[in-house]
């Protein structure tokens, strides 16, 4: 059993303590927006926020979280899916297959919380998620647009 505060609600999840947060979210809480890509903290597909910071949820077991920590997944990023980043993503048609994009958005949102107007170089250094479809330049443009900077198409 694990008691976790996810997207503003406390859940009692029926999982073994060694289950990585990712799998607790996906299989016990039913929140499948957070994706599995590698399981070893390499790709960022599983990125969620824990108390506002980006965390790769595949690499930490649920037993190491407490009920006091606020976990936010892509489903809880914005009430109606209208976070400025989500709007920018739609405006610029950022996703291709889309599989990595939940993680990209969560990593980008954590960056903007830290640094509301990051430079292109800061974006490229901080968001280290893997996108096999190669949407990187559109992700950069999306973050710039959401932060009120340029963000022209492409």
């Amino acid at each position: 059993m694990a008691k976790l505060n996810i997207n503003g609600r406390v859940h009692d999840l029926k999982v073994d303590g060694d289950t990585p947060l990712l799998w607790a979210l996906r299989e016990a809480a039913g929140l499948t927006g957070t994706k599995y890509g590698c399981g070893v903290a390499q790709c960022g597909a599983c990125t969620v926020h824990v108390d506002g910071a980006a965390v790769r949820s595949c690499a930490t077991p649920v037993s190491s979280f407490t009920e006091a920590q606020k976990i936010v997944t892509i489903e809880g990023l914005a009430p109606n899916g209208n976070h400025p980043l989500q709007q920018a993503w739609v405006a610029l048609d950022v996703p291709q297959c889309g599989y990595c994009q939940s993680g990209m958005l969560m990593a980008a949102a954590a960056l903007l919380k830290d640094k509301p107007r990051p430079t292109e170089a800061e974006i490229r250094e901080t968001v280290t998620n893997i996108c096999r479809c190669g949407t990187y330049n559109r992700v950069v443009a999306g973050i710039q647009r959401a932060s009120g900077q340029t963000g022209a198409r492409g």
């Binding site: 927006g33 993503w89 889309g98």
Partner: peptide, 14 residues
Amino acid sequence: TVDKTNGKQVYGID
């Protein structure tokens, strides 16, 4: 596009 930005898009894994 929209469902790929809010976690709603369902892939086989989901």
